[in-house]
Design a protein around this nucleic acid. Structure first.
Length: 784
DNA sequence: ATACATACC
DNA sequence: TACTGGTATGTAT
């Protein structure tokens, strides 16, 4: 009994560390923590969410236990050695210290809540929060006294504060205000870096330098005259009382300006400049901001929190001031150290930054290099002194939470919707991605992610869905006969192709062939392992690539079908050259042990590679054809395709949208569609396809292949393990081939691949009108 | 490369 | 009744 109680208490404590009130941030001082936590607990207890949090807490505790075990095994000697290393590192870091920059971090006070209060005077004296019963984005300072805070569900907040008013989010409004404040930021640093709608880093160094010589007139700013109301205390007059505990009689905000005729003159110092900026923000938006001024970004961020709300804090640019400041700083305040890191550090007796430096040798042995190097920088008060330019986006995603969904058809439909939304967002930014990730959260709050990287970039709804659907189907199958009981689904795309990757489709085919070449050489001739490295294409197994290519073709064909009814839009075709201009191995691929050796297929991956080809390489037989006459070349290809009618083959797979195995549902691609999409690209671009204008007989040839494959549907083999005879499975079409003769098999694979290559090359690409639009989607405004 | 976890707003 | 959504990055395999 006692034991039970004890373990319950322990898990309670663990639970608290995840769930309990975070009084780390501003506005949470002096409230009844225990009472609040009790209410949070009572409200949460027994819920699926709670259970999951408990589970995660357990995992963290186990991690800590492991760490402690590791710690126990550290010898005196190891520690000494580590200490030496730490000191070396510290010395080298110290050398990089730069105190010459003036970095400012600005942060709007309770942003969303403040905007809503500004626009609705009713709310001014009341506890309110922005969000919903399910989740709050932020709360005003009134509500914070009750323990109501960002990232807390509204229904719990209501328990803490029954009078709480919850206002739904109005993102458009916040975005508009955000644009207003960003205009002001730009006046002080045109290269400022926004962190969210309400927050930014600015480099004031240049501004300060110029400001020194500014006349007073440039530093004089007018108060807004609000109709009829005489100025009083400027702060009260300027903006509604948003925070009753905000520093009203701030010495840095003299009232004299207002009294003297509604102007205020700001000085030339950094503090004055920042105060001026905040003043202008307040004038323009009737909202207040807080700011931190420090020699680097890491410190500025901490400083902006120091005198929140409506205040600022300057950390002098001396080593002494910085080191003093750091010593008492709780580790949790540091950007990048969250609940879990804090808990782990606490377990080692590290709660503030002075402990951090004291324990650095130990930390260097227990944490990864990246982690302890970061700790080290923090403990020395170091951080970025130059604000990095806005980086390119690395991923884009959309996800949705809903009431339990366990029907497969609903799940697939939702997945499609998500893909549609995502494709729309991608289009806005002209993005093309290679990796698709599906995110699932079941009703027990367990999260799963499943990703697939394709070797070509995709962007359309259909393409994304083709990949996402497969991932989802796999998960559904894995769970069957139980259904997936989902509460959230999300789709993310990443691994965007860069602007110079102009021909992702083209590259995908080339990449496929080149990569398989590499693989062949490494798997069969170990001695040749160090052949040229693939620069950008990911190293995938042949099977993965084949699968990826099939997926792409799948998408493409389903698109073809959809578009069959409408007109065929003028689309361009990816360009590239297939020539036999070869310097190296020109051996017959079929003499090789590999089932494919497309070393003969070379292509210019970009238009800049000048190639005047005397010969063209047939994509079917891989033999050079000594002609530049496309008609002749086309006839050769036809002959090749005709010449091997007796090998088993399959048509390409078409998305069936059914729950049955796709392999069962392959269909013919309407030739008319293939043809309709075949258009010539830019002039001057050397493309194999360009050299073959769509001719009737071309497509007839292709059609024959399809017919052949229809005639000879290979027997199905889904499982790879239960085949008695040594049947081989084609990595392209994934059908088992009833032969153990490698030559026969190789012929099949060749044909299969060539067919896909042919179709692939007829695939149109959407002209990539990529504009580097940096309008990033902004998340919620959390003020923890 | 993939999966999962942590962190931030 | 009810515990987000978007992005980046670290850690582990």
């Amino acid at each position: 009994m006692q034991q039970d109680r004890k373990s319950e208490k322990e898990s309670l404590e663990g639970f608290l560390s995840r769930m309990a009130l975070n009084d780390n941030k501003a506005g949470m001082e002096g409230l009844d923590r225990d009472k609040i936590n009790k209410i949070i607990m009572e409200t949460s207890k027994g819920s699926r969410f709670y259970e999951n949090e408990l589970k995660r807490e357990l995992q963290v505790n186990q991690r800590i236990e492991k760490m402690m075990l590791q710690k126990a095994q550290i010898t005196e000697q190891q520690l000494k050695k580590a200490q030496a290393e730490v000191e070396r590192m510290a010395a080298s870091m110290e050398k990089s210290r730069d105190l010459s920059r003036v970095i400012v971090h600005v942060d709007m006070d309770a942003f969303y809540a403040a905007v809503e209060m500004r626009d609705c005077p009713e709310l001014k004296d009341k506890p309110m929060a922005v969000g919903s019963m399910s989740m709050l984005s932020t709360s005003n300072y009134h509500a914070r006294k009750f323990g109501v805070r960002a990232a807390m569900p509204g229904f719990i907040a209501k328990k803490l504060c029954p009078d709480l008013i919850i206002v739904p989010t109005n993102f458009d409004k916040y975005r508009a205000v955000s644009n207003e404040i960003r205009e002001i930021f730009a006046l002080y640093d045109p290269h400022f870096q926004p962190l969210s709608l309400d927050e930014a880093f600015l480099d004031f160094t240049d501004h300060i330098e110029q400001r020194k010589s500014w006349p007073e007139s440039l530093r004089t700013h007018h108060y807004h005259i609000i109709k009829g109301k005489p100025p009083k205390m400027n702060q009260w007059y300027l903006s509604p009382v948003l925070f009753e505990d905000s520093p009203v009689s701030s010495p840095s905000l003299p009232c004299s300006g207002a009294a003297a005729g509604a102007v205020e003159v700001f000085g030339t110092s950094v503090e004055e400049a920042v105060r001026e900026m905040r003043f202008r923000i307040e004038q323009k938006t009737m909202l207040t901001a807080s700011a931190g001024i420090a020699p680097n970004m890491m410190l500025a961020k901490v400083c902006s929190d120091k005198n929140k709300p409506n205040g600022q804090y300057v950390l002098p640019s001396t080593r002494e001031a910085v080191m003093d400041f750091i010593q008492t700083l709780p580790v949790r305040k540091i950007f990048g150290i969250g609940k879990v890191s804090e808990k782990m550090l606490n377990a080692l007796g590290v709660s503030n930054c002075s402990h951090l430096s004291q324990q650095m040798a130990l930390l260097s042995l227990l944490f990864s290099d990246t982690s302890w190097h970061h700790f080290m920088e923090v403990s020395l008060g170091l951080g970025h002194t130059f604000i990095p330019r806005h980086e390119e986006r690395k991923s884009m995603s959309t996800e949705r939470t809903f009431k339990e969904m366990n029907q497969t058809d609903q799940q697939l439909a939702l997945c499609k919707t998500l893909c549609q939304d995502l494709a729309g967002d991608m289009k806005k930014e002209g993005l093309q991605a290679k990796t698709v990730t599906l995110k699932l959260k079941n009703v027990n709050f367990e999260v799963k992610t499943r990703a697939q990287t394709l070797l070509y970039a995709i962007s359309t709804e259909e393409e994304i869905f083709a990949a996402a659907k497969e991932l989802l189907k796999t998960e559904i199958e894995n769970e069957s006969p139980q259904p997936l009981r989902l509460r959230l689904m999300g789709v993310r795309v990443s691994a965007f192709v860069t602007c110079d990757d102009k021909k992702p489709t083209q590259r995908s085919i080339i990449g496929f062939l080149q990569a398989s070449k590499n693989e062949c050489s490494s798997s069969n001739q170990r001695a040749h392992q160090n052949s040229e490295k693939q620069q950008k294409e990911p190293q995938q197994s042949f099977f993965q690539r084949a699968h990826a290519l099939r997926l792409q073709l799948q998408t493409e064909s389903s698109k073809s079908q959809e578009e069959a009814n409408g007109e065929t839009a003028p689309t361009s075709v990816s360009s590239g050259v297939l020539t036999s201009k070869e310097e190296s191995e020109t051996a017959d691929p079929r003499k090789d042990d590999d089932f494919i050796n497309p070393t003969q297929v070379h292509a210019s991956t970009s238009g800049c590679e000048e190639q005047k080809a005397e010969t063209l390489t047939c994509p079917v037989c891989f033999q050079p054809v000594e002609t530049t006459d496309l008609n002749i070349f086309n006839r050769h290809i036809d002959a090749c395709l005709h010449g091997r009618p007796d090998k088993p083959n399959r048509s390409m797979i078409v998305d069936s949208d059914s729950d049955e195995d796709d392999v069962e549902n392959h269909l013919m691609v309407p030739i008319s569609n293939v043809r309709g999409k075949c258009e010539v690209e830019k002039e001057g671009e050397e493309s194999w396809l360009n050299r073959i204008p769509p001719q009737k007989d071309q497509f007839q040839s292709v059609q024959k292949v399809f017919l052949i494959s229809e005639e000879k549907k290979p027997s199905q083999q889904t499982g790879s393990c239960n085949s008695k005879s040594p049947a081989l499975i084609c990595p392209v079409c994934q059908c088992s081939q009833e032969t153990d003769d490698l030559n026969v098999f190789n012929h099949h694979v060749d044909l299969c691949l060539n067919q896909e290559v042919l179709l692939e090359l007829r695939r149109p690409t959407i002209p990539s009108a990529r504009n580097t639009n940096n309008s990033s989607k902004q998340a919620s405004n959390y003020t923890y």
